[in-house]
Amino acid sequence: MITIKDVARLAEVSISTVSRVINDSKPVSPEVRKRVLKVIEETGYKPNDVARSLVTRRSYLIGVIVNNLAQSYVADVVRGIEEIGKMYGYDILLSSSYGSKETQEKYLQLLDRKQAEGLFLVGNKFDEEIVQLAKSFNKPCVFFTRDVYEKMNYITIDSKSAIYEVSQYLIEEGHKKIAYFSDYENRTTVENEKVEGYLKAIEDNELEYSKVYVVGGNKHSQAYELGKSIINEAGDFTAAVCSTDEIAIGILDSMIDNGIKVPDDVSVVGFGNIREGKFVRPEITTIGEPYYDVGAVGMRMLIKMIKGDKTQQGRMELPFTIEKRKSVKKLI
């Protein structure tokens, strides 16, 4: 096995010089740095991470906690986090809490013991105690969540504008009776923004009809059951704007199974642009969230904070898209 002594001997420098090159701790001339790096590459030498962290007092670890790895969008977010991490020399410690507050606490404490330099939390909602616990470790922390608290560093899109624009699109297609399907009665901050966007579009276009249904969750099965329960009301509206793609697919399936044609009788629009939306028939028109970019931009934001950049704090807003597919019918 190649050691740091071997690298020093082959590069004709001292062990301390090799250490400075590896840890970027003190200035080294470009010529010497180039020679040391060439020997490292040729020999395949890998520094001892434990020894390196003791010298630099850095772990080059980022702790990532997600609420549910089974959700397709989470994989895209994590891919963005991981690829940018690799680019900057950071490793990722990934854990899934499945929404359990107790598990989140356990993982946060574990990541602190492992000396993670930063934390990235991904999930629909985090209890305020979890947010405060993450902050208490005094290390940079970034969230991608639907419920935002004061002084939180987070990645988002303009959800109000997104719902407003997709509602406006439906109105331009001739729809005058548009219903909105929300997830929970107790709304998150982002869900409030979505409902505000929907109601503003209704108001700005002076439409007489508006209706907000509450699914009671964001699962396909919950939306499907709600869809069955309101089949008799399906004739009241010509379009349904849904809080998530999961809800949109559940509503679509429920209507089709109960004799309501999509989009001939009712047009359906989702939010998120998850992969499953492309595989249902008809394909779901939806608002696209750049999930890979959420992870990539959030990771860059986190690394900059680790390096002391205090400007990279608060809200980081990314652009959204409207993916026009086959679940919307033009009425005019």
Rank of each mutant, 00 (worst) to 15 (best):
Y45M: 10
E42A: 15
R33Y: 02
N48D: 09
I40W: 03
R33T: 01
Y45V: 13
E31M: 02
V39I: 08
V50F: 03
R58Y: 13
T56F: 07
P30V: 05
P30M: 04
T56V: 11
D49Y: 10
T43G: 15
Y45W: 08
K34S: 00
P47C: 07
Y45H: 13
R57E: 14
L37E: 05
L54I: 10
K46S: 14
R57V: 11
V39H: 01
G44P: 12
K46T: 14
P30F: 03
R58S: 13
E31W: 00
A51G: 10
R52D: 15
L54D: 14
T56P: 05
T56Y: 07
R35I: 02
T43D: 11
K38T: 04
E31L: 04
I40K: 04
S53V: 08
K46G: 13
T43I: 15
A51F: 07
T43S: 14
E31D: 04
S59L: 14
T56D: 04
V36E: 00
K46P: 11
V32Y: 01
V36C: 01
T56S: 10
K46I: 12
N48V: 07
K38Q: 06
R35S: 02
E31T: 02
T56M: 10
R52W: 14
V55A: 09
I40F: 08
K46Q: 15
R35N: 02
K34F: 00
R33L: 02
R57K: 08
E42T: 10
K46W: 11
V50D: 08
R52G: 13
I40D: 02
E31N: 01
K38N: 04
R33D: 01
R33W: 01
G44I: 15
N48M: 08
R58V: 15
V36T: 01
T56K: 06
E41P: 07
V39L: 04
R57G: 14
S59R: 12
G44H: 14
R57A: 15
N48Y: 04
R35D: 02
V55W: 05
N48C: 07
V50G: 09
R33Q: 02
E42C: 14
L54Y: 14
G44N: 11
V39T: 04
P47H: 09
R52V: 14
K38F: 05
E41N: 08
R35G: 03
E41A: 12
V55S: 09
S53K: 07
L54K: 09
K34H: 02
A51Q: 09
K34I: 03
K46V: 11
A51D: 10
E42I: 11
T56N: 07
I40N: 02
A51K: 05
R35Q: 03
I40M: 05
I40L: 08
V32C: 00
R33N: 01
E31K: 01
R58T: 15
E42L: 15
T56L: 07
K38I: 04
G44S: 14
P47F: 03
P47W: 06
V55G: 08
R33F: 00
N48H: 06
S53Q: 07
E31Y: 00
S53I: 08
S59F: 10
D49V: 11
E41D: 12
I40T: 06
V32S: 01
K46H: 11
